[in-house]
């Protein structure tokens, strides 16, 4: 059997991702690592938005919780791998606890409530002594797993890729199976999903918690890589960035999460380069990056409401079916993009 375009694309993406750390320059590598970590967060958020139909405007809070968890454990002289292992768990448990009251809300109300959670957590973290206040926690040791110390940027790039690979694998397995069907079902009709035996509230909580776990894990890697965490590393703007990445890429598709994270990161980097050119006002980088979220969101919602990946897939599908073909029509349809996400 000939390899399908889907597999070819997956192989190409994997190869490019794995080669990148070796090819990128010293200044580009940190951007790449942050991109890969963002892709982890966005994969979880995309599942939450695309499959469970829920929006979180506070996903950076779980990223932060993961980062602080890893940093606190590592600074207590406990094994650093324990910090990394704990970061997704603490974030997921926190999400499960606050999710119980929060997920009774819907749509805009839920989005604002998650935003409020992040603001509250930022405030708390910024005022507690044991979290280092506004200065945060410094001097987080390097991550060591089984005697191997992750020392340089290339090692962290591969660590981030491994975490992304795990995230994508778990997401894919869930989406394609019984709980994934339940999630996709409840995104279109909660009533019908309930009467088919899907515990709607429990499933929403599970996917909220899972997406927080992914964000927490990425946050753990972040803390070890940069060696410090502070409230200012996890602004509300970061949460917006994640949502924009989901919307740009296309909610409810794994490729969408990857494409969205990449596209937005590259665009921001480009604008940052322009903003810091000689002769630009000092505020230019900030203004440009804020503006780009707005413009990007408006453009995508206007012209590609389903996001880049589903739009491109539909275009490809049309082009393919336009010409006579001999291949079987039943091969696709196994993995269809989920319905449009709830708008923010």
């Amino acid at each position: 059997m000939k390899p399908s375009p889907r597999w070819a694309a997956a192989a190409a993406v994997c190869a490019a991702a794995l080669l990148a750390p070796l090819l990128l320059s010293e200044t580009q590598l940190p951007v790449y690592i942050v991109l890969v970590l963002a892709a982890c967060v966005v994969t979880g958020l995309s599942m939450l938005m695309g499959y469970a139909g829920q929006v979180s405007l506070g996903q950076a809070a779980f990223f932060m919780i993961g980062g602080y968890t890893a940093a606190l454990i590592a600074l207590e002289e406990l094994p650093t791998w324990l910090g990394l292992a704990a970061s997704p768990l603490v974030a997921a448990v926190l999400a499960a606890v606050i999710g119980v009251p929060l997920l009774r809300l819907r749509g805009h109300q839920l989005a604002f409530a998650t935003l409020a959670v992040q603001l509250i957590l930022l405030n708390l973290v910024g005022q507690q002594e044991w979290t280092g206040g506004d200065i945060g926690l410094q001097g987080v040791p390097r991550l060591a797993i089984g005697g191997y110390e992750f020392a340089d940027d290339v090692a962290y790039a591969y660590l981030a890729l491994a975490v992304l690979g795990l995230t994508v694998l778990i997401t894919r397995n869930i989406v394609k199976s019984r709980p994934g069907r339940g999630l996709r079902a409840l995104a279109t009709s909660e009533v019908a999903a309930e009467s088919s035996g899907v515990p709607v509230a429990g499933y929403k909580l599970a996917v909220f918690s899972l997406s927080a776990g992914f964000a927490g894990l990425a946050g753990g890697v972040y803390a070890f890589y940069f060696g410090y965490v502070a409230p200012s590393s996890f602004p509300v703007l970061l949460s917006f960035e994640y949502v924009v990445m989901v919307v740009v890429g296309g909610a409810g598709t794994i490729y969408g999460a990857l494409v969205g994270a990449t596209a937005v990161t590259l665009l921001l980097q480009l604008l940052n380069n322009i903003g810091t050119m000689e002769g630009m006002p000092a505020a230019a980088p900030t203004v440009l990056s804020y503006a780009v979220y707005g413009v990007l969101l408006v453009l995508v919602v206007l012209f590609m409401p389903r996001g880049l990946v589903p739009t491109a897939a539909a275009w490809w599908e049309r082009r393919r079916s336009a010409r006579p073909r001999g291949d079987d029509p039943a091969s696709d349809g196994a993995e269809r993009p989920a319905p449009a996400p709830a708008s923010v």
Binding site: R181, A185, A193, S196, G197, P337, A338
Partner: peptide, 20 residues
């Protein structure tokens, strides 16, 4: 009350949720 965006087969498979 169908699950739009899912295939016909997947829609029916959701029905089995109650006993799996």
């Amino acid at each position: 009350r169908l699950f739009g965006g899912m295939t016909v087969l997947e829609n029916v498979m959701v029905g089995a949720h109650a006993r799996t």
